[in-house]
Amino acid sequence: MNLPRRLRIALLLAPALTVVALFFGAGVVQAAAQSLGYQPYLDGWRWSTDAYVALWNDPAVRASFALTARVSMLSTVLAAVLGVALALLLRRLGRGRRWAAGLLQTDLAVPHLVGALCMLLLLGQSGLLSRLAQGVGMTAAPADFPGLTADGFGVAVIAEYVWKETPFIAVVALGALGRATAELEGAAAVLGARPWQRMRHVTLPLLAPAVLAGSVLVLAFTAGSYEVPLLLGRPYPATLPVVAYQLYRDTDLGSRPEAMAVAVVISALSLAVVAGYVALVARLARRSV
């Protein structure tokens, strides 16, 4: 077969793109239409932007922005820093390295739902830590233990995300720390660079693109994920996806457009993060040339 190159690429991409366009695209179109009042099952529905106005005035949504930003950004930064540190540490392990990397990958296979339940059993007021504290006489009753789950700050939610995403970043960073990195570090050492200079000017710049890509994935995921903040968070303030679902489950169908408006906002934010990432990568690529 001698198809023109562009046509061949288009054909090869077609199956994947069709699935994305059909399920994601159609879903987004539906959500956008419903957020603008499209409710054919109701008498007297009409197109309007009321839902977006309502969303702006809804205290649950307003409080949600701050919480969602805090949870997703803190989780991402902590996971990125710890993940890179873990990768650099693992690299020094030598023989045990493969073993430790395997251990990391078992964590990747654990669903977030299970992780959230584990956090509940660990950090809850009747959880393991609380019982240990009671056992050694630090607290007298479960209620004396600090409320780490269902707390206003999102401690347990962030803890779950960091626990789950740190190994992810570490695996990504380990992949980037190949033989080429070691050779460049060696060359820098021969040229008289101190350990900190090697780290600052050789290792970290080489790691940056991969870790950045991983972090963008973590940021988009933690801002848009539902089950962990539902299990470990509060009904108010709740993260954006939880608020969207609260509105979606409202028995009054009049709330449906607002639920869809929140969903559209989440999608737009995710796309903005990805767009920002693409722009950043383009800049990094230009700089490294």
Partner: peptide, 10 residues
Amino acid sequence: LWRRGSTYPQ
């Protein structure tokens, strides 16, 4: 209330 009413079970 539980948690001094700062939040409620879901």
